[in-house]
Design a protein around this nucleic acid. Sequence first.
DNA 1: CGGTACATTGAGAGATATCAACAGGCGTGG
DNA 2: CCACGCCTGTTGATATCTCTCAATGTACCG
Lengths: 237, 237
Amino acid sequence: MKAFLAAIGSNGQSCADCLVRPFSICASLDKTEMQEFERLSRHAHFAPCETVFAEEEMAISFYNLIEGVMRLYKLLPDGRRQIVGFALPGDFLGMTASGRNAFSADAINAVAVCRFSKVSFQRFAEDKPHLLRRINEFAIRELSQAREHMVLLGRRSAEEKVATFLVSWRDRLARQNGASATLPLPMSRQDIADYLGLTIETVSRTFTKLERVGVIEIISGGVRLLDPARAEALAAA
Amino acid sequence: MKAFLAAIGSNGQSCADCLVRPFSICASLDKTEMQEFERLSRHAHFAPCETVFAEEEMAISFYNLIEGVMRLYKLLPDGRRQIVGFALPGDFLGMTASGRNAFSADAINAVAVCRFSKVSFQRFAEDKPHLLRRINEFAIRELSQAREHMVLLGRRSAEEKVATFLVSWRDRLARQNGASATLPLPMSRQDIADYLGLTIETVSRTFTKLERVGVIEIISGGVRLLDPARAEALAAA
DNA sequence: CGGTACATTGAGAGATATCAACAGGCGTGG
DNA sequence: CCACGCCTGTTGATATCTCTCAATGTACCG
């Protein structure tokens, strides 16, 4: 299962053989731009649970996630946590409205990123409308995901939340690896709970329930989607 | 109270005396660009409860909201509704990832918009990186609001939700009209409930409770914030 | 083999939803 | 100008879902 997720992404040193390029903002760059762009970037690696950046911190870098999964979250003063998204290879992080990060980002498993200083990135992007448009598309896609998630958080039951999560996680992974009934879930139950606005116990119970009715099989490090049609129905659109 | 909200925005025919320009994407345009831009736009008016555009519909226009308040919402197949935001004068609507609207938009009170066909807008914006960047900023700001709202939906109690809503609604209005203890609430209790992921009864009870403890006074068409500090404390950051 | 962190399961409490009745404001029409 | 009806909002009683607290189980790692 680990190998499965590790297969997403690239350990290559060069953009030329970067496996996530087609999914990343870099896909908008031509060969020459790419070479210039490559010189601006530094690879960085993070171990599981390491923090890549924290909320409220000055945001001085952009990141292209090239390998691994990250959790993006916000904390309330009393420690309650809401995970606002999981980042997968190809995702672009670091855009802010205020200059400070709007959320924190941790590595869930081993993570590799391309890091760019904002100033050099912005100088590079300045006169490249195609890159700006691509970044804009990414922002709009995230916005659309965020709104979809608001519906989940505000209006769905626990069962619908979990089913929706599994189905859309499958769909996201499928875009990179092709379809599979076996879903790796590198994040903990607590992460899933904080993503869905539930407690860990409710998530656990709901998983068990879905297994009992034959929709999923709980396996080490993930689940197998035994009855995807049923799961989609439970997700209620 | 109606006059209060109507004062936001402009009935003027020309961009030159448009009151929302400094808040809108137009602020990034110089005088010449503005004049060209003006020729691309058509004013349109919507009566309370009229739908400006609907989810899933092909999105062929962009909109600058210049007067009034709109509710932006998504529906589940069984009719459950989640309001993903309220739009105020200056807000820019119509960006999509897929070409289809990700949500529906209704006028709450009398609404005036500048409407642009996407094709002419995109032709106009093509070689204007400053406009692209401005639009990008708007998208990122919305993204940041969306994530803040996820925290509210997933992790806050009813009382915290209502208090947070009142405080941030006040702050949004203050940005346009200056601070005031009197908050117009042009949206219905049902709208507020669907925004906060609650039922109308819970919203009503919570308003009453906040009034009983002296935090607000419920008045026709809105509330008066009697104890803003207390409201902020109840909002839990 | 024991410890620790994570996950599951159970019992009970509590917050919010649901169902139902009532009140108040506003416009309409007599 | 008043009465009626409708729509929105409020309040109450009860139900239910999810949370909380607690115990047990399980996998991984030293």
